[in-house]
């Protein structure tokens, strides 16, 4: 166990890097996923096609492939940046498809009468979506969305393994490969780092779920 105590600062910096990746990716994928969900339910066919294609591709491709695409493809179309941002972008693209599906299933769970009433009082499509349907949908969407975000936190390890570096996965890799530390204690340290985020996250989610749940 001394490995963990001796390398505690390294673990902390890895933990913070993981948090950083997750914070950017969570923010980005929530926004992008909601926009794509709006596309998928919109009355305009081309937008629906974009939404459907988006979800089909990003839900069925492994995150690694998406990451490779970002790393190799984005520079070719003139988007340059630090490797960190390619990793975050890949995670955002991948997660946004799951966020979209969670939001869409939430929209579908809103009773038709709500939208009909909104139309009956003369609201336009975007008005009824933003002020009647989405506020209700977002509540039913909290539990699945939470699971998506927790899965995303675990997927951030793939971004680390992919070479963004500095995160908890990279710390485990450095300690075991180049420093030759005993593997099992290092592993326990890394796993604890993730459990510190995921288990309280799960509990918080349960709490939130009970709080925002609406009887229907």
């Amino acid at each position: 166990m001394n490995v963990i105590i001796d390398n505690f600062p390294l673990y902390v910096s890895g933990f913070l890097q993981t948090l950083r990746i997750c914070a950017f990716a969570a923010l980005g994928s929530l926004v992008l996923g909601t926009v794509i969900a709006g596309f998928r339910v919109s009355p305009v066919p081309p937008l629906r096609w974009v939404g459907t294609a988006w979800v089909t591709v990003f839900r069925n491709c492994p995150l690694t492939v998406v990451l490779f695409f970002c790393a190799f493809g984005l520079p070719e179309i003139g988007v340059n940046g630090a490797y960190f941002w390619f990793g975050v972008t890949g995670l955002i693209l991948y997660t946004s498809a799951f966020v979209c599906e969670a939001v869409r299933s939430g929209i579908n769970s809103v009773p038709a009468g709500q939208a009909e009433a909104a139309r009956a009082v003369g609201l336009t499509f975007s008005q009824s979506l933003t002020s009647v349907v989405l506020p209700q949908a977002l509540r039913t969407v909290v539990p699945p969305l939470g699971s998506v975000i927790i899965a995303m936190i675990k997927n951030s390890a793939i971004v680390g393994a992919f070479g963004v570096g500095g995160d908890l996965f990279a710390v485990g890799d450095t300690l075991t490969s180049s420093r030759g530390e005993a593997v099992l204690p290092v592993l326990i340290g890394v796993v604890l780092g993730y459990l510190v985020i995921t288990i309280p996250g799960g509990l918080l989610l349960g709490l939130l779920e009970r709080k925002v749940a609406i009887a229907r």
């Binding site: 675990k154 951030s156 393994a161 996965f169 592993l187 890394v190 796993v191 993730y194 459990l195 995921t198």
Partner: peptide
């Protein structure tokens, strides 16, 4: 096991 990333 649910909290551990698969890649790890």
């Amino acid at each position: 096991l649910r909290g551990v990333p698969v890649v790890i």
